[in-house]
Design a protein around this nucleic acid. Structure first.
Lengths: 139, 139
DNA sequence: GCCGTGGTCAACCAGTTGGTTGAGGAACAT
DNA sequence: ATGTTCCTCAACCAACTGGTTGACCACGGC
């Protein structure tokens, strides 16, 4: 539950029902009952899904008489797209570099250009649970 | 297991360890042992993570003597970014329209411009398990 | 006040997930 | 052939997830 924000967002969108709700909310705010209507699950289940989306920061909720309208907070998507773009770019650049390398040496070096045998760990994603105690060490 | 591709990708990246591995792989291919080294989990656990990433189409693996180098397949990211962009754009456009609407009517209509009371369901994500039979489905 | 509507909370259950250990397969070196 | 290295498979376990039902809270209408 206390997972990092990125995990929460990815995890929230890993469920097709939740993605579907996000899609529905993209066209306009909605109440829990409205959101629940298309599915055959109970309202409580939908409420749970909504809480997951809310914990991920993907939706917010206000009060309007008895209703609790749900509102999509699209900015959180940036968190994901930034992460994705970062590593995609890295990978693409790597291809480019490898390509250049292959271009620059016709055929007189060893034919297996192992990319990097061991990188010194870089910043990476976050201060991961790298080598913590073990077995379910969920910070 | 038989989830849709989008769910598999999101789900695969919902784990910080797996994201970390993707980050590591962005700088170059690696073997299972190399990938396992920074963590305190067993190699078997890493192998499982890799299988999840592979099922999601995020990595591929070849054979090189005893080694099974893991290679990042960055194109799959497109699947996510496309989905995200689609709904983000929709949401942004909605704000724009609402903004225009508010601008065009100074103060002589009701002050609660309920977005849309019920949209006719659109294509959305996939052919969801939308209201099949049973379970209190008040038709 | 009391009731209906809209929504949440709590307890429970089944299935999945992330980890473990142990056994074993595949490709080399000798 | 035997051993070594790298990796996967199988069985098991604890924790989490997505669903259920039932109780309950917060409003607004009467």
């Amino acid at each position: 539950m206390a997972a990092d924000p990125l995990s929460r967002v990815f995890s929230a969108l890993a469920d097709p029902t939740r993605r579907d709700m996000v899609a529905r909310l993209a066209v306009g705010d909605a109440t829990v009952n409205e959101l629940a209507e298309p599915y055959l699950v109970t309202v409580q289940a939908v409420s749970k899904h909504l809480k997951v989306l809310q914990d991920a920061g993907l939706v917010s909720r206000s009060r309007q008489a008895q209703r609790r309208p749900v509102h999509l907070e699209a900015e959180i998507f940036d968190l994901m797209t930034k992460w994705i773009e970062c590593y995609r770019r890295q990978a693409e650049e790597r291809y480019r570099r490898l390509d250049d390398l292959l271009r620059s040496m016709p055929d007189d070096v060893e034919p297996t250009p192992r990319p990097q045998p061991r990188q010194p760990r870089q910043p990476l994603t976050q201060p991961q649970p790298l080598k913590p105690p073990q077995a379910g060490a969920s910070t």
